[in-house]
Computed example of a mutant assay.
Amino acid sequence: MLKKDLHEANRLSWNAATRAHNSHKGDQARFLREGGSTLFPEELELLGELRGRSVLHLQCNSGQDTLSIAARGAQVTGVDISDEAIDFARALSAGSGLPGTFERSDVYDWLASAPPARFDLVFCSYGVIGWLSDLKPWAEGISRVLKPGGRFVLVEFHPVLWLFDDKLRLAYPYGGGHHVPEAVGVGDYVALSGEGLVPWGFEEGVRNFKNPNPCHSFQWGVGEVINSFLRSGLMLERLEEYCYANGCKMIEGMREAPGHRYLLPEGVPELPLMLGLSVRKAG
């Protein structure tokens, strides 16, 4: 069941956090104008050819990945619940010269009102599943807006990762849509990750950020995510698991590897830290 009151609390928390996140990223418009991209190889491989494709980027945050997709020749639409993120994305589109349409909305409301069979690709990435209070209407909405033969692509932190706190202590249940309230709100993971997320030059920006607004996340398992799409009539094409995390340093002592990837601390057995998923709508 949708928990719209908690979505609204998350909107406020993300508004505050987004300002802190972008304070570390310098002149992002210039980075994009000069041919820079925030996409990692994993999402590029799963997305495939983008030129001429219509792409919907759900929970797009401040639009950096959305516009990196636009730079490859796609027509992009980005949707996010955060006012701050969408305002920034629109300014980034204008400043970079990369065209994109950005709409502020709860993802559920947007999917319910959008015209059907409109997009070749729907895309989500990095820290999105945990903000969904109900998988069923999300997956059904994605299926509805995809054209026949269209695909949904997800590159996401693995649900196993969210069993642990930042000191790698087992702290949370697996799956079931369990509600996890966080009084501290969305944190400044950009400051913690440094150049992992800002390879063009991390800036100090906001220091010691403390979010005044709490947030609420939800625990979903891999099977629950996949089954939500199968029940919505989409077909599983590909499932990948990766024992590293792109860009984001979420566990104390994580080690940086080439390509701005992070590994678990020395001596800790490997665990899946990301997953990649592709599902297709019948043609």
Score class of each variant (00 low, 15 high):
residue 227 N to T: 12
residue 255 R to S: 11
residue 41 P to R: 03
residue 145 V to M: 07
residue 258 P to Q: 13
residue 201 G to I: 05
residue 74 A to V: 10
residue 61 N to V: 00
residue 254 M to V: 11
residue 39 L to R: 09
residue 108 Y to D: 08
residue 262 Y to T: 05
residue 210 K to H: 10
residue 30 R to A: 11
residue 70 A to D: 04
residue 79 V to L: 00
residue 245 A to K: 15
residue 223 G to L: 12
residue 41 P to H: 03
residue 205 G to K: 00
residue 122 V to T: 10
residue 120 D to L: 03
residue 122 V to L: 11
residue 248 C to I: 01
residue 183 A to M: 05
residue 91 A to P: 00
residue 215 C to D: 12
residue 281 K to A: 14
residue 197 L to Y: 02
residue 130 G to N: 14
residue 40 F to Q: 00
residue 257 A to D: 15
residue 117 A to N: 04
residue 7 H to P: 02
residue 228 S to G: 08
residue 72 R to D: 04
residue 183 A to L: 13
residue 109 D to F: 02
residue 219 Q to N: 00
residue 62 S to T: 11
residue 279 V to W: 01
residue 114 A to M: 05
residue 124 C to S: 13
residue 260 H to A: 12
residue 249 K to R: 15
residue 273 L to P: 13
residue 51 R to Q: 15
residue 43 E to G: 05
residue 131 W to V: 08
residue 198 V to D: 02
residue 183 A to F: 03
residue 277 L to V: 04
residue 242 Y to E: 00
residue 235 M to P: 05
residue 257 A to T: 04
residue 226 I to A: 12
residue 224 E to M: 07
residue 267 G to C: 14
residue 209 F to T: 10
residue 267 G to I: 11
residue 162 W to N: 12
residue 19 R to N: 02
residue 38 T to W: 11
residue 147 K to S: 09
residue 192 L to Q: 11
residue 8 E to A: 15
residue 283 G to H: 08
residue 44 L to C: 13
residue 89 A to V: 00
residue 156 E to F: 13
residue 181 P to L: 10
residue 218 F to C: 08
residue 241 E to W: 02
residue 139 A to K: 11
residue 242 Y to V: 07
residue 94 A to Y: 03
residue 134 D to W: 03
residue 280 R to A: 14
residue 220 W to M: 14
residue 45 E to T: 04
residue 147 K to N: 08
residue 266 E to D: 14
residue 107 V to F: 04
